[in-house]
Design a binder for these strands. Structure first.
Lengths: 351, 351
DNA sequence: CTGTTAGCGCTTTCAA
DNA sequence: TTGAAAGCGCTAACAG
């Protein structure tokens, strides 16, 4: 590598001091520099192909202009993460206009929080966005109260850290009401994950809400628990069906889990939606392609990322966000797995 | 924010100089420090919760320990990118053990190369990995020859930049031979994208190779061109079918494009694989779930990322890689869309 | 209008 | 075995 060109070189070439170079190149306001000197500096910089050194700038600026994006997921989860590209893109777009870059750090859930807290302690980044925080990531709370900039994607129970999340309760309620509106009264549910996850218990609660609101008793025998995976959906559905309980519809709080359930239903030759109505959650890309296309709740993935990025920038600017906990609306996407009339058959409507 | 704790504070507290602090904390070899002093320093650091400042370290080390991952894709492409999570994970795993972090930067294809070259010029990063370089990203070549560390995921025609890519030719050949082995002689093809993309023309060439090798004339009338999207597959298949040409199988060089094609075939009530055998490329997660499950060519997404990360680390260590152009093997995943006998029905085999 | 000077926090010769 | 001092490249008070 050729030796690096510094302000010193530019200054020498232009016959001025390093300060002047800095002033000219940064267009420091209030610093009136003669047009002639100015040009000399600019020319010298161009000829020498001078680029300011980011690290040196950070050193003096006291900030890195880097935001850590911590993905608290196991590699397997990451692989199956249909939203990551959108979320990442959202974050990136939100912060790039303010001069920030994204430091991407995948961390398995079983790794100690220390692994990513180092990012903030050692000042690799100005703040961190944590996607999928674990409920025992308590370091976050103390770090935040000590001034660290932290934004959650998802929620951490019993904390008031700045966060962006999907309206899981509302989304689940919407799904359940759709089923109820279609005339179903015996509705089963399979959660997306164990209820230790806030998102899971929220979806379960939304489901319950809707039933109660419509005077339908919640039957615990119709509830099963998924675990993120396709397999867990297969097992849960098998278990639910084999229990002998009667139901005409199922709300499955994860499309991925629903995939497994649908597989099992196919094996048993149970037709959708004729024999059983199925409603999912997430709207993964597959949802529109399985047979029948799955009615589900669409999550605003890009918005999640954008919201987190935007919130972080505000935090970094010392703005006190009026609303540090952002809840994003989700929308019901009606396809054919519930039996509702759909005029835009996915087989024809290509968008 | 509380004032930052520096080596000075630790030194003061331990009653030693900053130098000693640095020696102790970094375990500098050959520096024999009395066990007592050593402990005093360690204690002081712990009590003060001292963390070395990453930026300051970079400043003196002359390297950032950051690797730029540039995603040269439009936002729409990013959204539909099923491989990104795996690739990112691969890169991250490969470099993290060497102390590197990933700087993630999505850049639309129509943005000037300058937008990401700044990363290397201003030394935000020690090197960049470019996923999906544009054929006119020539700055990369000159930058590389001037010592910049660059690794491509994909290929840049007529250059010998270090790169990691999939064996598109071999993969397409494999797909075509599978079809031929099944007895097909009139085989159509829909490309994944215009042939200005190296990957596309490679897949087309692999397809041709296979036919020629088996003495089957290549019929240009059976070739159509996709454009990354589902819609383009729909149109291409429609066009191919309406042309009146006769064929019993189609090789579609992208599962996404194949999705559109399959939609059209369904509309025309053409059964797979009875009426027409279809083979895809990529093995996107959906491939196993559409009806019938799609036979396709699986790409080593994680390996792509890992390979790029590993290559970058070697470059950074000034190792001259014996093989700067890595070509990763792809594998044929036989499902049911081609009519081959499959003992692991996806409806039963849950993995 | 421009230059001198003092750091940012750390590592690392070189002396003591 | 430890400390003084220089310096990474830049910015920004403060003079001149």
């Amino acid at each position: 590598l050729a030796k690096r060109v510094t302000t010193r070189d530019v200054a020498e070439r232009a016959g001025v001091s390093r300060t002047t170079v800095s002033f000219v190149l940064n267009n420091v306001p209030g610093m009136r520099i003669s047009e002639e000197t100015r040009q000399r500096v600019l020319d010298a910089a161009r000829q020498l192909k001078y680029y300011p050194d980011a690290t040196a700038r950070r050193m003096v600026a006291g900030q890195t202009k880097l935001i850590g994006f911590v993905l608290r997921q196991s590699p397997e989860q990451v692989f199956g993460d249909h939203f990551l590209p959108q979320v990442l893109n959202g974050v990136s777009q939100a912060v790039s206009q303010y001069g920030y870059h994204i430091l991407f750090l995948p961390i398995p859930p079983d790794a100690p929080a220390e692994d990513y807290m180092r990012l903030v302690h050692e000042r690799h980044v100005d703040g961190i966005i944590i996607s999928g925080p674990r409920s025992d990531d308590r370091e976050l709370v103390s770090a935040f109260s000590e001034g660290a900039k932290v934004v959650l994607i998802g929620k951490l129970a019993e904390t008031d850290l700045p966060s962006v999340d999907v309206d899981n309760i509302g989304g689940a309620r919407m799904a359940a009401e759709h089923l109820i509106g279609l005339g179903h009264r015996q509705i089963g549910m399979i959660t997306n994950a164990p209820t230790v996850y806030t998102g899971s218990s929220d979806r379960l609660n939304g489901f319950r809400d809707a039933l109660e609101k419509h005077g339908i008793p919640v039957d615990t025998n119709l509830i099963r628990y998924g675990n993120f995976t396709i397999e867990s959906g297969y097992e849960a559905m098998k278990n639910l069906l084999d229990s002998g309980a009667a139901f005409t519809a199922v709300f499955i709080a994860s499309d991925t889990v629903a995939l497994g359930a649908v597989r099992f239903l196919r094996e048993r030759s149970i037709r959708l939606p004729e024999d059983l109505a199925v409603c999912g959650f997430d709207d993964i890309p597959l949802a529109d392609f399985i047979d029948p296309p799955l009615t589900t709740v669409k999550l605003p993935a890009y918005g999640l990322g954008w919201g987190a990025g935007d919130l972080m920038v505000r935090l970094l600017n010392e703005e006190i966000p009026d609303q540090p906990e952002i809840i994003l609306e989700s929308t019901l996407v009606v396809r054919r797995s519930c039996g509702a009339s759909v005029n835009n058959s996915s087989l024809i409507d290509i968008t």
